[in-house]
Design a protein around this nucleic acid. Sequence first.
DNA 1: TTCACGTGTCATCTTTTTCTTACACGTGAA
DNA 2: TTCACGTGTAAGAAAAAGATGACACGTGAA
Lengths: 116, 116
Amino acid sequence: MAVGGPTGDDLVEMLAALANPIRLRIVATLAGRRDYVSQLAREIGVSRPLLHMHLRRLEAAGLITGRLELSDDGKAMKYYEVTDFDLHLTASTVAEAAQSLTRPDPGKGPAPKEST
Amino acid sequence: MAVGGPTGDDLVEMLAALANPIRLRIVATLAGRRDYVSQLAREIGVSRPLLHMHLRRLEAAGLITGRLELSDDGKAMKYYEVTDFDLHLTASTVAEAAQSLTRPDPGKGPAPKEST
DNA sequence: TTCACGTGTCATCTTTTTCTTACACGTGAA
DNA sequence: TTCACGTGTAAGAAAAAGATGACACGTGAA
């Protein structure tokens, strides 16, 4: 997906999702091959609940996607894989994205009202 | 500066620095013209102490630089401007950067020891 | 002197993020 | 049944980030 213009809010979410060693490692691992949760947790070396949280964050940002599949054993395995994200960050691209920011500060005011 | 390979740690720091509405807006504002702290605080609409903290984070990540200058009035003004950062984020670039990650998880173990 | 403007920091509080522990469910095999 | 393996979630502790207010300093002008 070309990202000529994610909204400022979306950009913040993507950046926040990537700005973490564990999540960076998750993306790196999934970049090689898709994997299911338990196996991924073993490879990266984190607990399943923790990995689960990080996966949610990455998926919410649109950087990875997961789908539930059934193995031959009849076990439900959730496989994750990376999406085709492509972010180009320079002062100008950031400046453009910032124009569509709706939150002046994180988690406070809901949205800016239009000036009269 | 081309960023064919910032270390994983550096990348995390840059991403964390940009993953914030206020800091995104700071970079966007400085992308147009350099500015000094008090004026910047007024334009963005945040307090000086708060802006000061965000500026430190951005400067630590190497995204902006500031230098102290003297105005005609003899006042010490600290002017900030953006650097020529250029980050390209895809699954593969992230995978490459992740190889040089030294911290398995944020704020726990100091550094991984080399395996024998 | 007092005011307005610039710089900075410190202590504190609130909020968010991160992480662990414990629990729930389902299936196949011994 | 019990065990191993897969899935998920919920509660609470710990750590980090965000934000505020009060303070310090220095200069020029009224």
